[in-house]
Amino acid sequence: MERFTRLQRAMMLAGLAPLGVVGCVPAAQQPAPRLSAALPAPTYRVAVPVPPPPPPPPRALAPTALVTTINGLADAFGGRVGIAVKSIDDDWMVAKNGELALPQQSVSKLWVAMTTLDALDKGRISLDQSVTITRSDLTLFHQPIAALVKDGGYTTTVRDLLQRAMTRSDNTANDRLLKLVGGPASVNAFIADRNLGNIKFGPGERLLQAGTAGLQWKQDMAMGRAFEAARARLPRDVRRAAFDGYVANPPDGAGAAAIANALARLQRGDLLSPASTRWLISTMESSKTGRARLKAGTPAGWSLGHKTGTGQDFFGRTAGFNDIGILTAPNGKSYAIAVLIGDTSRPVPQRQELIQNVAAAVAANHR
């Protein structure tokens, strides 16, 4: 027993458990086993290859021959000319000087008509609403409705005024609509609200034409040929300065590209209600003005809804000789066209020929 004790002591000093101790610890003194925390069930993620989205279809390109023709027509004509052709269906555009702000003249009646129809869409007016025109509403130049205005005035409807403005380019009819919808500020607000871009509406027919001539407007200029007489009395240098100032920075200036884009959006139904869109385009298709412009270059079987614009002359120069419209082929494809001649001394037949040739080129390159 003494030997065993010595042996145990020696083992303990050597760091070894005594023989009698190994495996002899009572169960009550053994440490409780540590329970490991439950592990979450393993998850497996399988990478499934996702194919990339298909590339967008290639954007249709304008016919090369049309691009060449439009550039050639503008270059050969010379002067301040802007031309734009927009495919309403295929969304391509051909433009030459398309961003150049040029005088619209009566082309701007289109924006008055749109503003009026927008007010109709919002329930503010109706086409059959009565409107009275008095002598204080008369303007100048082309105003056939003036012959109907007697001492008691002439009462008609919004529909009639729109038709006169858009199909006969009646200045007084247009300015009366302008007054009805809230003046130039309302038209410019419509243009801005629809994001039509490089398009301005001027101060109205009377102030626009008086400023172009170098005159201060007086209402008695609306009677007979009083405006022309007052203009003729001005010194030539006064008239030239006013004319040059208008051409350089027209308050009714617009780019041909912006007008073509606006016409395309009109046709697509982006600007007005479906009913107002149909009404306006059909009214433009019945236009009586500009038979020697886009209309003369439109082939048989095609339809054209358009609006012309013609400015004042100054010793052979004209500040604005224009035509814009929607040209539709027999198969239903449509093109928006804007041809703006901002300042030219070319004879009228040559101006008309330029505009005709643009329409003919569009038709010739139609597919």
Rank of each mutant, 00 (worst) to 15 (best):
W279R: 09
G305I: 06
T283G: 12
R293Y: 10
G301I: 00
S287I: 00
W279Q: 04
A292W: 00
A226H: 04
R239K: 14
A275Q: 12
T308P: 08
A292S: 13
R231T: 11
S303K: 08
A292H: 09
E228Y: 11
T308F: 03
D237V: 10
S286M: 11
P299K: 00
M284P: 01
T283N: 12
S303V: 10
M284R: 01
G297S: 08
R225E: 14
L271C: 07
A264T: 07
T289N: 08
G253A: 01
L266C: 10
W302S: 10
G245Y: 03
G297A: 11
R265K: 13
K288H: 15
T283I: 09
A229I: 13
W279F: 14
G297V: 03
D237E: 14
F227E: 00
S286W: 04
S282F: 01
A229H: 05
S276N: 12
R236A: 15
A275L: 13
Q267V: 01
A232P: 05
T298F: 01
G253E: 04
L266G: 03
L234W: 04
D237M: 09
L263V: 09
H306A: 08
R233F: 05
L263W: 00
R233N: 15
A232N: 08
I259T: 09
L271D: 05
N261M: 04
W279V: 06
E285V: 08
D244Q: 05
H306F: 02
S303N: 06
T289W: 08
A275Y: 09
P299G: 12
L263D: 03
G290N: 06
D252Q: 06
R225P: 02
G253R: 02
P274V: 06
N249E: 13
G290I: 01
A258Y: 01
R265E: 14
N261I: 07
P299H: 01
S286I: 08
A226Y: 02
G305N: 02
G290S: 10
E285R: 13
L294N: 02
A241L: 11
K288F: 09
A258W: 00
L280S: 05
R268G: 12
R268C: 11
A296L: 04
I281L: 15
R225C: 04
R239D: 07
R265M: 10
P274Y: 08
T277Q: 15
R239C: 07
S287T: 15
I281G: 06
A260C: 11
R225Q: 14
D244I: 02
D270T: 05
E228H: 09
T289H: 08
A292M: 07
D252K: 03
W302R: 04
T277D: 03
A242C: 09
T308S: 12
R240I: 13
R293V: 03
A254N: 05
A264G: 15
H306E: 13
G301M: 08
D252G: 06
K295G: 14
M284V: 07
R231W: 01
